[in-house]
Amino acid sequence: MITIENLTVSFGAVQALRDVTMQVETGKITAVLGANGAGKTTLLRTISGLKEPVQGSILLDGRPLVRERPENIARMGVGHVPEGRGVIGEFTVEENLRLGAMITKAPLNEGLDEQYRQFPVLGERRKQHAAKLSGGERQMLAMARALIARPTVLLLDEPSLGLAPIVTAQLMHTIHDLCSSRNLTVILVEQNASSALRIADHAVVLHLGTVVANDAASTVAADEKLRQYYLGMVE
């Protein structure tokens, strides 16, 4: 379980997150929704240690994450798939995966086999440079690279960005399966609210850095006001 309390993060004079308090249940998918600039990416970057908050605390199963180095947070089992995916284009598919597997004690080959089973297209292209992959394939690779480290928490930043609707649907399906089969805790940041709400258990809506809704996904999805004002979902 991730407990975030009174988290405030600023860039100079601009506050990107203001007094954010929320909880993320173990083994559930929590969607973080909101418009551009709502502070969603900042939230993930603060959890994984890339950004230091001005105040507030983040606890992972009781262990504080604030002011911990990102590499140590990763070693505590937090996998972060950054916006724009962060696949290393100069590396082959397999090298990207080997890099992801660096911090687990599990045998490399087992991990690779497992990921290639999950994402067969990666197995076919294991010797290719990641720069040559399509957008959807890169997203798969980024996910696989995070998963091979056997994280307990997965932070996904806009996984649907730039993907065709059908690929997005498949991806959401995969995320949902992974979560239930491995008891993963997922924080899913999305601008594409409808597809995220379809698989999420819980949803948090951010607006200009503050939490405006924090409820079961189905409740948020049914709230006409939220849909209209903050999620841009107009029928």
């Binding site: 994984s48 990102p70 590499e71 990763a74 950054p82 962060g86 100069e90 590396f91 660096m102 480290a149």
Partner: peptide, 16 residues
């Protein structure tokens, strides 16, 4: 190599 090419991503993957 990863640290040289993509330091931030490397840190997210646990590379020191």
């Amino acid at each position: 190599r990863a640290s040289a090419i993509a330091p931030e991503v490397s840190r997210l993957l646990g590379v020191r």
